[in-house]
């Protein structure tokens, strides 16, 4: 079982990240996925998060309790959620927007300049797809193929191709990061 949390500030496509991943897993990767999100005023600005519980069998408890993966796209969300990431867990963070505390080896840290990559593709709105590319490459929780199949309906048709490009960019970057710093798997996730 995996527990994944996507976090950032409102407008970064955080909810969409979990929706795409959840759809990919449950519809194209033959997994069970339950997606929840934080609602209310806190979802409109400030730190915002969406969560996925992924399992080989039916998910019972729908909320994440001690996530093994955290994606943090803002300083606020890093500060809020990093302490709740389990020991040995994977942290993927926005390299230009998050200044993490010193790496003490508690979690496995992977910086990714996703916003900058997105801007290079024409719009910072694609940052969430770059993020998903990194996430897929590093964690291998979801397949690349399933993610791409999940996109129609969740991104506007006219941006489908560029979103796929953004995903690929992130995926390639994720693989490079892994080369530099192999993931310690096992209980880590």
């Amino acid at each position: 079982m995996h527990e994944v949390r996507f976090s950032g500030f409102g407008g970064q496509g955080i909810v969409r990240c979990a929706l795409i991943t959840g759809k990919a897993l449950s519809m194209y990767d033959d997994k069970f996925a339950t997606m929840t999100q934080s609602f209310g005023p806190e979802a409109r600005g400030g730190a915002c998060s969406s969560q996925l519980v992924v399992s080989e069998s039916r998910v019972l408890y729908p909320y994440v309790t001690l996530p093994g993966v955290l994606i943090a796209l803002s300083q606020d969300s890093y500060t809020t959620y990093e302490p709740k990431l389990r020991d040995g867990g994977v942290l993927i963070y926005e390299a230009d927007l998050v200044t993490p505390k010193e790496d003490d080896g508690r979690v496995q840290m992977y910086p990714a300049p996703v916003t900058r990559f997105a801007e290079e593709l024409g719009n910072r709105l694609f940052a969430n797809l770059v993020t998903l590319g990194c996430f897929s490459a590093i964690t291998k929780i979801v397949t690349q193929d399933a993610m791409k199949k999940a996109l129609p309906g969740l991104v506007p048709d006219r941006f489908l191709e560029v979103n796929k490009k953004a995903f690929d960019k992130g995926y390639a970057y994720g693989l490079e990061s892994l080369d530099k710093k192999p993931l310690v798997t096992g209980d880590a996730q």
């Binding site: 959840g22 449950s26 519809m27 069970f32 339950t34 997606m35 999100q37 998910v59 729908p62």
Partner: peptide
């Protein structure tokens, strides 16, 4: 309830 209403699954 809110949880079932807002959670996404297949």
């Amino acid at each position: 309830d809110e949880t079932v209403g807002h959670m996404h699954e297949k």
